[in-house]
């Protein structure tokens, strides 16, 4: 297509202009229509891909993620050794400056370290 249309004249005839407009508009319509079909297919595939693991997930998650109440009444995700619980209790005691406290539940935070790193980077310099 390009070799014929690349020689478009500065003053084209009426017919050349009409074919230029018709081809151009159809080109845009066809390209975006194709893109629309492709997007619909991608959407259908992605929806199916996401639904399948989700259908399997709830059972597994309910088994592994459900916090288990321990003998001392603290809910934890999995088995946490006694000395770690003692360490957490000490840390909260220091942070709360000795105010009365009771640990009820211990849960992991996946993005904590990344957030702390980002906070440190941003607080390392002052924005003028």
């Amino acid at each position: 297509m390009i070799p014929t249309i690349a020689a478009f004249a500065a003053k084209p005839t009426v017919m050349e202009n009409v074919s230029f407009i018709v081809i151009g508009f159809l080109f845009v319509l066809v390209v975006l229509a194709t893109l629309s079909i492709v997007t619909t297919i991608i959407g259908a595939l992605c929806t199916r891909l996401i639904k399948e693991p989700e259908a399997k997930k709830p059972q597994a998650a309910s088994i592994s993620r459900k916090p288990e109440p321990r003998a001392d009444g603290i809910e934890t995700e999995g088995d946490i050794p006694e000395h770690i619980i003692a360490l957490i209790a000490t840390a909260t005691h220091v942070i709360l400056k000795g105010r009365p406290q009771k640990i009820v539940s211990i849960r992991g935070s996946s993005q904590g370290w990344a957030q702390e790193g980002r906070r440190e980077i941003f607080s390392s310099h002052r924005v003028r």
């Binding site: 508009f25 845009v28 319509l29 390209v31 975006l32 229509a33 893109l35 629309s36 079909i37 997007t39 619909t40 991608i42 959407g43």
Partner: peptide, 16 residues
């Protein structure tokens, strides 16, 4: 646009 890909045709039509 991804949720309703048909609207791509509206963007195409406006190019007229």
């Amino acid at each position: 646009l991804i949720a309703n890909p048909r609207t791509l045709l509206l963007g195409a039509a406006a190019q007229f």
